[in-house]
Amino acid sequence: MASRRAHSIHRIQTDLPVLKPFYVPPPAYASASHWLANLPPYTGILLFLPLLIWPFASHAAGEFTMFNAFEALFNWIPFLFTSGFLFNVLISLFSMLFGTLAGAVLGLGQISKISPVRRTSWFLTQLFRNSPWLVILFIVLLALPFEFVIFGVIIAVPDWMKAVFGLSLPIMANISEIVRGAVLSVPTAQWEAAESLAFSRQQILWRIILPQCFKRMIPPWMNWYAILTMATPLCSLLGVEEIITLSRQAMEAENNHPELLVPFYSFALGMFFLYCYPIARLTIRLERKYAVKL
């Protein structure tokens, strides 16, 4: 199904004029520069006036214009936001939750004393950290069963749940690296000091080491949340009804006028920017605040 979508992508050719040329006849009586110099200063503004009026004028003439396109977008905004963007946010929240939990386990596994656990954790971390997100998503979508049978009850797995699972895998791997890095960033002297006080390994890790590096993990964790949120539109390739899928459907409903493309995609870009930019600012602020002070 995903491929059908990919196949159906074709260039949308336009035969509608986008900008009409504004033609000023050359003066016959003087040199062009002389004539230009004699123009009153408000001519510049007048030159742009047709550009401002043009969308409205041609609207009246029955063509589909940028003006109509924006009008269409405004009608769709409530739907695109509540059913589309908020769904992206929901996917990102679920993926982050599962990814963080699994990543914490995997990260602790990477510093385990038991060699097979450590190696397996390392392998899984590297595998999902270095594979493209989209490849992981495809594999999860196609390799996971459509439905589970539990006690004779057939439970269908919706695509969006598969997407959540697929997105939480790379998050898991990256959180695992954050946990490992943070634990290793605590000086070994701390381990030694705690050992000399007869704490067990478990106690040292949970009571002494992790509380020290917990704060340090927050900024990179937030950074990955932002990256994850920006990966959610990939789910549209899997047919999940999120903002990009819905934007496409909305544009289809508006007869696929090419003028729709700029407003609709700009809206999607804008939504992500408004959501991710504050997270990025906060991440930088926390990074400075929690920077390792020696």
């Binding site: 260039r11 990966a231 493309l261 995609y265 700009s266």
Partner: peptide, 23 residues
């Protein structure tokens, strides 16, 4: 920098190809 860092690369692709591509 801020625009490209804080918007999804996939939507950027779509925007470039479909929205700007028509011009």
């Amino acid at each position: 920098i801020q625009f490209f860092r804080n918007t999804p690369p996939y939507v950027q692709l779509l925007f470039f190809y479909f929205a700007l591509g028509q011009f």
